[in-house]
Amino acid sequence: MVSFFIVLFSFFFLSIPVSTTDTISADSTLYGDQTIFSSGGTFKMGFFQPGNSKNFYIGMWYQQLPVQTVVWVANRDKPVSDKNTAVLKISNGNLVLLEGNNRTPVWSTGLNSSSAAY
């Protein structure tokens, strides 16, 4: 299931403009209020805060619906408390979410090259 989302992420989001940077790639990050859009503009990805929660999650949601409709959440079981110190990046072919000034790992796809489906 995780490999499906890696493929989905790669298909829709890699090398797509980010709100304050040109692309998300192995040497760039997504943090704070930055978001990326799918090529057709249907989906948006970034940090979001559901309802009255004080926590933040990395997720994908429909861009053009009036009510935020989340279709995927990366760190459902491990939210972050401050989106401005959390960073989503690509490392060794994995999506990795780090939190805090010391960049503590919070979530990762955890795939190695032999388990990824291509």
Rank of each mutant, 00 (worst) to 15 (best):
M1T: 15
V2Q: 06
V2E: 03
S3Q: 14
F4P: 05
I6Q: 08
I6K: 06
I6E: 08
L8Y: 05
F9Q: 00
F11T: 12
F11Y: 05
F11M: 13
F12D: 08
F12R: 12
F13R: 01
S15R: 15
I16L: 14
I16M: 11
P17A: 04
T20I: 07
I24N: 03
A26F: 12
D33K: 10
I36D: 01
F37N: 12
G40R: 15
G41A: 13
T42F: 08
F43G: 02
F43L: 02
K44P: 02
M45S: 07
G46Q: 00
F48N: 12
Q49E: 10
S53V: 11
S53T: 13
K54E: 14
N55M: 11
N55G: 06
I58V: 05
G59N: 10
M60W: 04
Y62N: 03
Q63D: 11
Q64M: 09
Q68P: 01
Q68N: 04
T69E: 04
V70D: 03
V70C: 01
V71Q: 05
V71N: 03
D77C: 11
K78T: 15
P79V: 09
P79L: 04
S81W: 09
K83T: 09
V87S: 00
L88N: 06
K89Q: 12
S91T: 08
N92W: 14
N94G: 13
L95Y: 02
L95D: 01
L98T: 02
L98G: 00
L98R: 00
E99T: 10
G100F: 05
G100Q: 08
N102Y: 09
R103N: 15
V106T: 10
W107E: 03
S108K: 08
G110I: 11
G110Y: 08
L111K: 02
L111R: 06
S114L: 07
S115W: 12
A116R: 13
A117W: 10
A117N: 15
A117R: 10
